[in-house]
Design a protein around this nucleic acid. Sequence first.
DNA 1: GAGCGTGATGTAATCGGTTTCATTAACGAT
DNA 2: ATCGTTAATGAAACCGATTACATCACGCTC
Lengths: 334, 334
Amino acid sequence: MKKYRPNISDVARLAGVSTATVSRALSNPSLVSEATRKAVQGAIATTGYRLNETARNLRHRRTGGIVALVPNLANPFFSQILSGIASVLGPAGYNLLIADTRTAGADRLLDYAEPSRADGLIILDGSLPAAALTGRIPMVEACEWVPGLAAPRVKIDNRAAAGLAVNHLADLGHSRIGHVVGPAGNVLSVARLAGYEDTLRSRGLPLMQSAIYQGDFSLESGRVAAEVWLQQPQDTRPTALFLASDAMACGFIGEVQRHGLSVPRDVSVVGFDDIELIAHISPPLTTIRQPRTAIGQIAAERLLNRLRGGEDTDQDTILSVELIIRASTAAPRL
Amino acid sequence: MKKYRPNISDVARLAGVSTATVSRALSNPSLVSEATRKAVQGAIATTGYRLNETARNLRHRRTGGIVALVPNLANPFFSQILSGIASVLGPAGYNLLIADTRTAGADRLLDYAEPSRADGLIILDGSLPAAALTGRIPMVEACEWVPGLAAPRVKIDNRAAAGLAVNHLADLGHSRIGHVVGPAGNVLSVARLAGYEDTLRSRGLPLMQSAIYQGDFSLESGRVAAEVWLQQPQDTRPTALFLASDAMACGFIGEVQRHGLSVPRDVSVVGFDDIELIAHISPPLTTIRQPRTAIGQIAAERLLNRLRGGEDTDQDTILSVELIIRASTAAPRL
DNA sequence: GAGCGTGATGTAATCGGTTTCATTAACGAT
DNA sequence: ATCGTTAATGAAACCGATTACATCACGCTC
């Protein structure tokens, strides 16, 4: 008389039918007569029966779960993508499993790409080893991507997006335009830097090593970049900067202001991502908006489509970005 | 000859032993002789066998998953708590499932508290119905809590924390101190408001209805509160405000600055949470620091301890907070 | 009335492991 | 030589569902 958990045979016994019939009544009611269906439903109600997903999954050779591999769960940038993913996966009957690739060891990575762990994988971390992931369960990549991994990608054109930012600054009349790059080796950093350089060249603007600052997407690295910039001679340092993330742009502006300078009077700043907060700081930040929720949703949809056996052309989905002009950019001081 | 997935009997056949022995060699090697253990390991290596978790879980009547119920995944406040949870769950061999309680319907909630879905539950949303959650799988509450639900809680003393903030403002010499509350009905809003009122009373300061502004933790609601405050007569409106979240404080400061006023010269501001970004805006925000990662970790540990049959005293864990004084607070202008 | 299609249901195999119980061999003690 | 003990292993039940196949009753056709 303990808290006995009723199973399908308890229901079957009570309803006076076989377990096969109960199973059919639940998953394919049209195969069962009206009368027995009622009986089964009654038995379910009185026993309080609930289906055991694990057993069903075992039989179906699936897990009902999708793993998202994120580089750093604590980074708010990802939470909106995850939100988009969750909004698609939930209604589709899949569980969203989240694994932090920094917390989890590299060996654990293999476990996550196991068919017995998850039915599919969404990769948000481009720094993972391609070898460990190829030929495993179905997967898609979102935002970042792993070079050499054959998986559909849902992303933006980072190179062109960087161009939008730099062109905006050039249009305002800036000629010494700097760039704070993301983490070394990161695919996004590389693409955005390339876009920055492309655009300077196409506009006939000087490309100076001293105008490129190392960063890692974090607030603190933006602050450090500002320290470097502040120490450069005023007549040669950039009058405008494009930073590869909004977080860095925040850190940069904060430090510059703390030294008594003003944005955009003394320096124009463009960020990247359009995280919610930066519209509310002062000055509100000019930035490149990435459709983060949509990226997550589309990635999830493409994965589900694949799992359902749908045709998938393996083509990348490129979502469009938008230059959001706010108050952190202006013409250079004469 | 398709992509046949080897199972335990394939391994057993190749190693010349029974499946029982293979199972033992994997889960309890001391029961198996040195020689057979080697043979099994060899067979595993040549077949490329990997254990099917679903099958094991079925037999063990567990799922290997822990569900975290978050009110809004897109809110960066939660990502750091989740990060703390993930850092404990991963190494312990549990999967972290994340469900957004807004995306998921109320009926889906029941599914998440099912033993066949997850072994345990971490509740981060205090607005869930207690009735739907009582008597289900083991659970703990973190940060927020559901009134009337009997589950161990890991949280801070919100009332006392609000007191820290208000006392700080009073100590600076402010006598008209306002408060922007969180979402109506939210347990945190209620506790922080109570702490605010307590402290005003104990300091003998006036408690005015016009100094209490409705908010909902969001940036935008902080901005709206600023609009209201700006329209109040300068000689009666608060000279200092305590806001129930950093996001609201950001929105408030941004709007105030946009109207040409300066913080803290014209108004002092204290936030709540200490999200990373607000140390970098200008002025850097004075706030109450919540140990978010630790909250997540401890919640996860308490849940695991319970699942392992450990004694759990059902007592709440109260973590301490800290007043971080930065530059958004100062003595009132004379 | 024989033959046959159809609908409803039961039997039993199956998914891939774990674990109880039984069996056997080896070894030391009596 | 016999008994008891222990270590190592296999046979088979089991976890809780799904589903291929068999069965049976019914109604229809010719």
